[in-house]
C-alpha cells in the first residue's frame, strides 16, 4: 500500500462545515502530528481517513483508487479513535484476543508487555476502566496493530505525565521497529515536536499548515533580555506573545527572516511552539 491522499474533502454536519476542502497526503513510514484545538476537525478527519464516516464531498484515495472501491485496504489502517467502540462488558485480555483474531498482524505478546508496563489490569472489564486507562488500552491496541497506517486520536487524553512519556517512548520504539506511518492528533504541540517529522495544523475545518517540524520552527524565534532592550528590539516586529520575569522579558516573534543584527544584550532561542500554535489558530479564527 502506498500513500493515502485526501482529495477536496468536505464534511458538513447539517449546516456546520466540519471540514472545508481538505487536501492532504500521508506518506509511508513517517510520524505526523495533527494539531488543532478542540472542535477544529481532527476527529472528523481521522474518522473519514479510516472509513468510519463518509465525507460530504471529496474522496480518500489510495493508489489512485477511491477507498470505497477497495474496501480491503481498510485492513491496512488502524484508528484508535475518540469514542470507545470496544464492547463495554468485555475484559481487557478478551479485547486483545479478539483484536488478534481480526487483525493478524496484531502483536499480542507486545500488548501484554505494554499492559504490564502501563499497569493496565487485563482482567478488568472495559466499563470499569478509568478515562486514563481506557486511553491506555486504546493506545496499546494501536501500538500493537502493526498495520501500515496507525492513527491516534488524542492518545494522551487523561494520562499522567509518567504515562505520557511512556506512550511517546513506545510510539517511537514501534516506529523504529517497523515501517508503519503514525499520525498523532493532539493539542500538546511541545510534547510531540521532537518525535514527529511532519506537522499538520487544522483550524476550523481548514488545513493551515502542512509542513515539516523544522520549517515550522523557522517561522519565528524568541528574544530575551532586559525589558527595555527587548522592547526596543521588538518595536517593529510581529510579536505573538511574551513572558516577563523580574527585569527580563522573552518575546515570541513571528518572522521568516533570519536575524541579522542582534544587540549583544539580547539572546535568541527557539520559538515557543505552543505559543506559535495558539497564535496561528487564533489568528485564523478572527478572520
Amino acid at each position: 500500500m502506498s500513500n493515502i491522499n485526501l482529495v477536496n474533502i468536505n464534511k458538513n454536519y447539517r449546516d456546520v462545515a466540519a471540514l472545508k476542502n481538505v487536501n492532504l497526503t500521508f506518506e509511508r513510514n513517517k510520524i505526523y502530528g495533527l494539531l488543532g484545538r478542540n472542535g477544529a476537525g481532527k476527529t472528523t478527519l481521522l474518522n473519514i481517513l479510516s472509513n468510519r464516516i463518509f465525507p460530504t464531498s471529496g474522496q480518500v484515495v489510495i493508489d489512485d483508487k477511491n477507498i470505497n472501491d477497495i474496501p480491503k485496504q481498510i485492513s491496512n489502517i488502524y484508528l484508535s479513535g475518540e469514542s470507545n467502540l470496544l464492547p463495554e462488558s468485555m475484559k481487557v485480555k478478551e479485547i486483545f484476543k479478539w483484536t488478534k483474531e481480526f487483525i493478524p498482524s496484531f502483536d499480542g505478546e507486545l500488548a501484554l508487555r505494554l499492559a504490564q508496563a502501563f499497569e493496565l489490569p487485563i482482567k478488568k472489564r472495559v466499563q470499569s476502566l478509568s478515562t486514563g486507562y481506557l486511553t491506555i488500552l486504546k493506545d496499546i491496541l494501536a501500538l500493537c496493530a502493526n498495520t501500515e497506517f496507525v492513527f491516534f486520536d488524542e492518545p494522551v487524553l487523561g494520562l499522567d505525565a509518567n504515562h505520557r512519556e511512556m506512550f511517546y517512548k513506545f510510539l517511537l520504539e514501534c516506529y523504529v521497529n517497523n515501517d508503519s506511518t503514525y499520525v498523532v492528533s493532539t493539542h500538546h504541540i511541545d510534547e510531540v515536536a521532537n518525535i514527529i517529522e511532519n506537522i499538520i495544523i487544522i483550524n476550523e475545518g481548514s488545513i493551515i499548515r502542512d509542513t515539516t517540524c523544522e520549517s515550522l520552527l523557522s517561522e519565528g524565534y524568541t528574544i530575551s533580555g532586559k525589558i527595555e532592550d527587548v522592547d526596543k528590539y521588538i518595536a517593529d516586529k510581529n510579536v505573538i506573545g511574551f513572558d516577563t520575569l523580574a527585569n527580563t522579558k522573552s518575546a515570541y516573534i513571528l518572522s521568516a527572516e533570519k536575524i541579522t543584527e542582534l544587540p549583544e544584550s539580547l539572546q535568541v532561542s527557539r520559538i515557543n511552539l505552543q505559543k506559535l500554535f495558539i497564535e496561528l489558530t487564533k489568528k485564523e479564527a478572527s478572520k
Partner: peptide, 14 residues
C-alpha cells in the same frame, strides 16, 4: 540512528 533516536526521544529522520 535508531539508538540515538530512542535514547533522546527524537524522530530518527532528525
Amino acid at each position: 540512528t535508531n539508538e540515538v533516536a530512542l535514547g533522546y526521544q527524537l524522530n530518527p529522520a532528525t
